[in-house]
Computed example of a mutant assay.
Amino acid sequence: MSMRIGLGFDSHAFKEGVPLVIGGLKIDHPQGLAGHSDGDLLLHAITDALLGAVCAGDIGTFFPPTDPKWKGADSTVFLETALEEIALAGYKIVNLDCVLIMHRPKIVPIAAEMRERVADLLGLELNQVSIKGKTPEGLPQDGTAVAHVVVLLESLDNGESGRKLALHADRPTESDIEAAITSIAAQPRDISALGRKVPAFDTDDLT
């Protein structure tokens, strides 16, 4: 059995006039997080951790912030692509550990609900997902939220790996990809056709 570890990081500044979404969970707060997509720094960090664990690049490789098609995009689309990449590589998630660092909102009161949401998005049991909230004591980041994520993967057994890979045996054509992007724009939850690599772009974080 092969094991792999992935490390993810993301940060976003708080911004007036946008909704706050962390871990796929909409949170009642007077400020949201600035970003090219929906600013969900936790899902961005998880996505990067998963992609990094299988050496598939990072979130900017697949969804460059210079591409207007991802403006305001639901970050669950990014996460689904990362899940497809680890399945194609023949791995599955063992567990992940997440740390959110910010002054406000307080994470502890909503950590349980956030864990449930992340576990659901990843198809995991609740005891495979840890989310902790910390305050940036002594650090000048009052207007910024930071996320750190570590993920552990293990290789699939031969039978399970074969079934996963069979689902993706037919590589999509360029027209398939364009059709998928059009579909995503109309129905953000329809993400079954994503997961193909595109030429490398500037891999700066989504901001």
Rank of each mutant, 00 (worst) to 15 (best):
P188A: 07
D97N: 13
G23R: 00
R4L: 15
E116W: 02
D40N: 10
A193N: 08
I46N: 02
A145D: 00
R189S: 14
P199E: 07
G24M: 06
G72W: 02
G8Y: 02
G143A: 03
S161H: 08
H103L: 12
T47F: 04
S11P: 00
F9K: 07
C98D: 00
A89C: 04
V129F: 06
I93E: 03
I191G: 00
K69G: 06
L100C: 07
G39F: 07
L165G: 03
T173N: 06
R4Y: 06
N127C: 08
A89Q: 03
H168Y: 15
K106M: 14
D204W: 07
E80T: 12
A73K: 02
I184E: 00
T135I: 12
V94G: 04
V198K: 08
D58N: 15
T182H: 08
F14V: 08
I191A: 03
L20A: 08
D204C: 09
D142S: 11
A73W: 02
R163Q: 13
L156R: 03
I177F: 07
W70F: 15
Q187E: 11
D170V: 15
A49V: 11
Q128T: 06
H29M: 10
K71H: 12
V108P: 01
F78I: 06
F201A: 14
H103V: 14
P109F: 07
S175G: 01
Q187Y: 10
S175F: 10
D142N: 09
L25G: 01
P172T: 05
V129I: 08
L42D: 04
L206F: 04
H36I: 11
V99G: 02
K92Q: 13
K26M: 10
G17V: 04
K197V: 15
A53L: 01
L25I: 05
Q141V: 15
D40W: 01
P19V: 09
T61V: 09
K26N: 11
P19H: 04
G6T: 05
H29R: 01
L194F: 06
D48G: 13
Y91W: 08
D58T: 12
A87T: 01
H29N: 14
A111N: 00
D120S: 15
F62N: 03
A185C: 03
D142Q: 10
F14P: 04
E125F: 11
A53Y: 00
A87P: 00
P188G: 07
L139E: 14
R171Y: 13
G57S: 06
G23V: 09
V149E: 00
S11A: 13
H103W: 10
R163H: 10
A49M: 09
L42K: 02
I177H: 01
L206V: 01
V151P: 03
L83R: 11
S11M: 12
G60Q: 04
S175V: 13
P65F: 11
R117H: 10
V54H: 02
A186P: 00
I107M: 12
E84Q: 14
D48W: 05
V118P: 06
T76S: 14
E137S: 11
M102T: 10
Y91M: 13
P140S: 05
